[in-house]
Design a protein around this nucleic acid. Structure first.
Lengths: 139, 139
DNA sequence: TCCTAGCTTAGACTGCGTCTAATGAAAGAT
DNA sequence: ATCTTTCATTAGACGCAGTCTAAGCTAGGA
């Protein structure tokens, strides 16, 4: 659980109580929170933490490559601490909840050379969309 | 060129000069503009057109399924009039340019049932990222 | 313990998009 | 052609997510 905190020390991060709370909130997450949701959860443990600190910290984590920034709905970004394994995302069009999923093949192999427009193609990610069980039931 | 305008008539759209200008701007586009870029181009032909009308019209076109809303950078949405064919996108990490591409397989087929978390999965889109020839050459 | 780089904070600010309420105009009816 | 109804357009206010600023605070090294 303090795996992420350990890695951050290696990055010579100044470890403050605020940063620890944010890192631990992320590291324990099984869903991908928005910055606001992370702020809420951090506030439960440290009521005076500020919005700016949460945003600063999240951006630093993304820059360090420890967290993935996701952006599916065009409104709020979500943060994915599960950066180790190659995975894709399944999103509910109703409530926006985001799950990690794994496919049986690598999509990079599906883009023929003549569709690459001379690009050096580095990675490919798939966004699956649908409705989660709750939203499917509630219209 | 008025292909899109023709289709819109079929949707029983009230055809106003503003809507025509926006539809034609989109229909002639080979790249995917942001709402602001569309507003700029529409203003060249109709200087008094308002921001609200551009946004309203774009949202209606998306709702009608005539235009695709893209959202890659988390800032501004882009609009893709090439909705006819199933396609995916290739984005340059350097300059952000976006190309339509086609794959040899449908990614929906590659998500196993036990990875669907009970969702009703409706569609899948792939985002390929890399560097365009210019950005690859310029570091 | 002290020092200093750099972190945290409240709140102002920005960019992108939406909403509102008043005015204007497209298209069917006469 | 004119009327009428209904829907579209407009300027500007508003909202949300995120960034910036300037002042104070603190982690960690000396």
């Amino acid at each position: 659980m303090s795996d992420l905190v350990t890695r951050l020390r290696r990055h010579q991060w100044r470890m403050t109580p605020q940063r620890r709370v944010i890192a631990e909130t992320l590291d324990g997450a099984h869903v991908h929170y928005t910055a606001d949701e992370i702020l809420d959860r951090a506030c439960e443990r440290m009521p005076e933490i500020s919005r700016a600190t949460v945003y600063n910290t999240l951006n630093e984590l993304v820059a360090l490559g420890e967290v993935l920034e996701l952006n599916f709905d065009g409104r709020s970004k979500r943060y994915d601490p599960n950066v180790d394994h190659d995975h894709h995302h399944l999103i509910c069009d109703g409530c926006g909840v985001t799950k990690d999923v794994h496919t049986v093949a690598d999509p990079l192999d599906w883009l023929p050379g003549d569709e690459r427009h001379g690009f050096t193609v580095a990675k490919a990610s798939i966004t699956f969309r649908g409705r989660c069980p709750e939203c499917a039931a509630n219209g």
